[in-house]
Design a protein around this nucleic acid. Sequence first.
DNA 1: AAGTGGTCTAGACCACCTG
DNA 2: AGGTGGTCTAGACCACTTA
Lengths: 247, 247
Amino acid sequence: MVDAALADPAPLFSPLYQQIKTLLMRSLQAGDWKPGEVIPSEIELAARFKVSQGTVRKAIDELAAENRLVRRQGRGTFVATHAEATTRYRFLRLTPDAGAGATLQRRLIDCRRMRAPPDIASALGLGPGEAALQLRRLLLDEERPVVFDDIWLPAPLFKGLTTEKLSGYRGPMYGLFETEFGLHMIRAEEKIRAVAAGAEEAQWLAQPEGAPLLSVERLSFTYGDKPVELRRGLYQTDHHHYRNELS
Amino acid sequence: MVDAALADPAPLFSPLYQQIKTLLMRSLQAGDWKPGEVIPSEIELAARFKVSQGTVRKAIDELAAENRLVRRQGRGTFVATHAEATTRYRFLRLTPDAGAGATLQRRLIDCRRMRAPPDIASALGLGPGEAALQLRRLLLDEERPVVFDDIWLPAPLFKGLTTEKLSGYRGPMYGLFETEFGLHMIRAEEKIRAVAAGAEEAQWLAQPEGAPLLSVERLSFTYGDKPVELRRGLYQTDHHHYRNELS
DNA sequence: AAGTGGTCTAGACCACCTG
DNA sequence: AGGTGGTCTAGACCACTTA
C-alpha cells in the first residue's frame, strides 16, 4: 500500500526498486540463497518489502540483465551459477574457427602455494605477508594444446584446495569455486594483447619460440567487487579466435 | 488429457510490446527519424499505436538497452548516433595501458575501388560483379602508429566517397557513414587473433617483421542485419590493450 | 508552466511448469 | 489445480528540462 511505501519518508535519494535491488544483492552476498537455488517468488518478496510486485519485478529484471539471477517462466527465479551445463564457460570467449565448439579438455600442470609477486598481490588485494595459490594448466582441443593458463588465487579464500580436488572435479573451475569455497564469480575484466611466445609457453603450446599468442589477462570479481582471481591465459589462435559482440 | 495436436497451436503470437518494438525498428530503418533526432514522446506513440504508455515504454526500454535509442529525462528519446562527442568510438575497445585515453589521430593511406576478393565479397553479401571500396589507414597516438586498418565497403552503398571527403571529415568514420550515406551501424561482430606482422604492416606500424600484433576482424551491420563494413585492424599492443568486460 | 521521461501502484489476465 | 513469471492497462505522482 501507499501508506507503507510512504511510512518512511527518510531522505532516500534512490528509487524504490533500486533499494530493493540493493537488498536482494545483500541477500545474495550473504548467501541467503545459494547459486542454483530458487529465490522467493515476486509476490512473496513484494509482501516482505511492502512494495508492489511491479517494483520487485524491476529490481529482479536488472539483476537478471546483469546475469546475477536467471528467470524461468512458470518455475521461479534462480541464483545464477557457473556449475550448470547451460552456463558452462560463461566467461570463455574462445571459439573454434570452424565447427561446433567441442568441449575443451583440461590438464593441470601444477598447483603451488607461494608469496605472490607484488603486482599480483596488489591486484588481488593481498596484504604483504599473505600467500597466494598459483595454478597452471592447459586447455586442449582434441589433444591439441590451445590455452596455457597461469592462475593466481588469494590463499586465505581457498583453504583446502588441492591438486587432487582440482583434477577430480568435473565441470568448470568456477563451479568448484562455488561449491567448495562459496565464491561466486559475477563479473570479470579482461585486457587483451598480442605477445611473442617465451620458451616455456612455446613448449606447452607446441609452438616455436616467438610465435604470436593472444594474452588474455582476466581479473574476476565476486560480490562487492572483491577481486578473487587473476588469470593470464595465452591462447594459440591458429584455429581458434576470441569472439566479441559490439553494440 | 487433451490431445497435444489439438491443443492451441498459436505459434505466431508475440507480446504486444514486441510488435511495437518491431514497428519502431521499421521506422528507424525507414529513416522516419534520423540519427540524433528525437522520436515522438511515449504518450504520442501510445496513442498512435493504441496501446498504453507502459507497453510503448517496454519496447523503448529494449531498444535503449541495445543502444539503438537513447533516453534523456525531461528532453525525450533520441535515435542513437556515432556522430556525437559522447558516443565517439563506441566500437573501439583499444585503451592505453596508462593515462586517460587521448583521442587517436587518423591518417588515410589510400582509398581504392576494386573487385573484392571472394571471401570479402561473400562476407559483405556482394554479387560476383559488384565492386568494393578498400580503405587503408593508420591510427596514431601522439605520432606513434598504433592501429593499421584495412577496410572494405560495398561500393554500391557508398557512391561518391572520395579521399577528400574522408580526409576532410572530423569525427568518427561511422558518423560520416550516417550523414553522407544514411548508413547507421548498429552492431558488430569481432574475431580476435594474434598474428605475426608481415613486411608491409610492420613498416606502417614501425615494428620489426614478425612482431606479434592483435588482429581484430570486424563485421559491422546496419538495420536488418545487413553487413556494411568488413574491417581488419592490426593493433600494436605494447602500450595499449583491448579491454573487455564479462558478466 | 508545460512537456518529457521515470517511478510506483493495483488489478487483470495469459503462458508455462509442476504435482 | 495452483503457483510462478510475463504482459497489459490506467492512473497517479515525481524529477528533469526547456521556454
